[in-house]
Computed example of a mutant assay.
Amino acid sequence: MEASPRSWRPRPGLTRTQRSREQDRAAGSASNRLVDVGGGRRGLASVALTPSGKTGRVSAVLQWTSDGRRRRLRLGEVDLPTRSANLREAWRLAGQTGLLVGEDTAGSWASSPATRASMRSNRSRDTKPELRLRSLLHREGLRYRVSTKPVPHLRRTADVVFSKARVAVFVDGCYWHGCPEHGSIPATNRDFWKGKIEGNIRRDRETDRLLTEAGWTVIRVWEHTPPTEALEVVRQSLAQPPGQPLRANGR
């Protein structure tokens, strides 16, 4: 049985920029796609997905250009239902090859390789808390948009958006958004991280204000909030006119 086209085939009509952004999202960032191409130079790699007629799964290949020649490394087979999920899994496999070198870390904001690895593991979308909440919302028969701007001209992206009801949901990570229960500031480079997290908090409050002024209800959910509790806050907000920002589990 051949793999479903949905599991490997790209959307038709994508521009080169859009294809590159798709790879960036799957890898976690453009810097996570870097490989050493020799001479101290680095180049962007990409993952190609093709169906395997023999196994019915999807074959993943890492490819890049070095000295004008196309290089390819077979990563193995992936077997998830969507192209985006298979791309993410393929990039995870690519990370195990030792070929990816990441960004130049000289003068990096991170104090150690372990810190850099921890920071890279903080995904900007499709985190486990988001997926759990979205699963419950979908089970309730609620339909929504994911990772989109509630107000097109505002450079603010919400994790879950109910356009008709004008409800925007943000699932905030405890570290990056300064959770009073679980947030902490590293001892190394403390001033840098303190400023970074405080800046995120200020931006969150500004986002709440801008969206509320535009007639939206803003819901903020900590990543540690039980999904059922977050679901109840969303359900109640959908039944009411747009109002003040809400925080599931307090702030």
Rank of each mutant, 00 (worst) to 15 (best):
L49T: 12
G53N: 03
G98M: 08
R123C: 04
P113G: 13
R11K: 13
G102W: 06
G98V: 02
R21E: 13
R143S: 03
R116M: 07
H153R: 00
D208G: 01
G98H: 02
P242N: 02
R116N: 05
R123F: 00
G250F: 06
L154P: 00
E181S: 13
A90T: 05
Q236L: 14
R251F: 08
T82I: 08
D208M: 04
R247L: 03
A27M: 13
V101Q: 02
V146M: 01
S66K: 09
S237Q: 05
S121E: 12
Q96S: 15
R120W: 03
N200H: 07
E181P: 04
S7G: 10
L80K: 11
K54T: 05
H182S: 10
Y144R: 06
R6H: 12
G243D: 05
E77C: 07
R92K: 07
V61N: 07
T55K: 13
R41I: 01
I197L: 09
E223N: 05
T157D: 01
T65V: 14
R125M: 12
T17C: 11
R70W: 04
S66W: 00
V35P: 06
T188A: 14
A45D: 03
T225S: 07
E181D: 12
W176D: 11
S237P: 01
T217W: 07
Q236W: 00
P242H: 05
Q18D: 03
G39C: 01
S20M: 15
A110M: 12
S46Q: 09
K164L: 08
T188V: 15
L87G: 14
P51R: 14
A106F: 10
L137K: 10
S135D: 12
V58L: 06
G141R: 13
T55L: 14
G102L: 11
S124D: 11
R21Q: 07
K128S: 07
A168G: 09
G195Q: 11
R9V: 13
C174G: 10
R139W: 00
Y175A: 09
